[in-house]
């Protein structure tokens, strides 16, 4: 980042910095983390900033909140390149690696309208197993239908 962009995203005292998010997906990352803005944390979002590694990238800083491992792991669905730094007193105290969990529960929607998880009366959370990491392919634990990367991105970014 150049000086101008550094100014845009100044250092935080305590909290979490999610860096190297693929360009254009910062809002989806926030959504996936369950951060709506109404929690009261100061949230800084930078989109489409220059990156040596990615060309362009997004960046999210959430003050006074340390993301939990399971929240971080969900990120792999849409931001496999992301790096997560936990900040305390302006210092990076921990770098968390993003690791795809074995199961994805409740975030995504099965594409099969006949699946039990799609019946509003039944209140069954969706559950997906990871079939392949790259390209991402998930399998509904209930009806067995595949959920492809393109659909995962569509659901999480729209």
């Amino acid at each position: 980042m150049d000086e101008q962009e550094t100014l845009r995203v100044s250092k935080i005292k305590n909290g979490t910095v999610i860096d190297h998010i693929p360009a254009g997906r910062a809002l989806a990352v926030l959504r996936l983390m369950g951060i709506t803005g109404s929690e009261g944390h100061v949230v800084t979002v930078a989109m489409n900033v220059r990156s040596g590694k990615l060309g362009k990238k997004d960046l999210v800083k959430v003050e006074n909140l340390e993301l939990k491992a399971e929240q971080v792991n969900k990120l792999t669905l849409i931001a496999p390149t992301a790096t997560i730094n936990i900040i305390r007193d302006y210092e990076v105290v921990e770098k968390r690696n993003v690791k795809l969990p074995d199961k994805i529960v409740g975030i995504l929607r099965c594409t099969n309208p006949g699946c039990i998880t799609r019946q509003p009366m039944e209140h069954v959370s969706s559950r997906f197993l990871i079939v392949s990491k790259s390209p991402l392919r998930l399998e509904c634990e209930y009806c067995g239908r595949y959920l492809e990367e393109e659909e995962v991105l569509k659901q999480l970014t729209q």
Binding site: G114, C115, I116, V124, E141, G144
Partner: peptide, 25 residues
């Protein structure tokens, strides 16, 4: 008619559940 309902039934019920035909698989 709901796919995956037998698995869901097994999760909900303490007694054994037999799938008498469920979805397309």
């Amino acid at each position: 008619p709901y796919e995956g309902s037998a698995k869901h039934a097994a999760d909900v019920c303490e007694h054994p559940v037999i799938n008498g035909g469920d979805g397309t698989q």
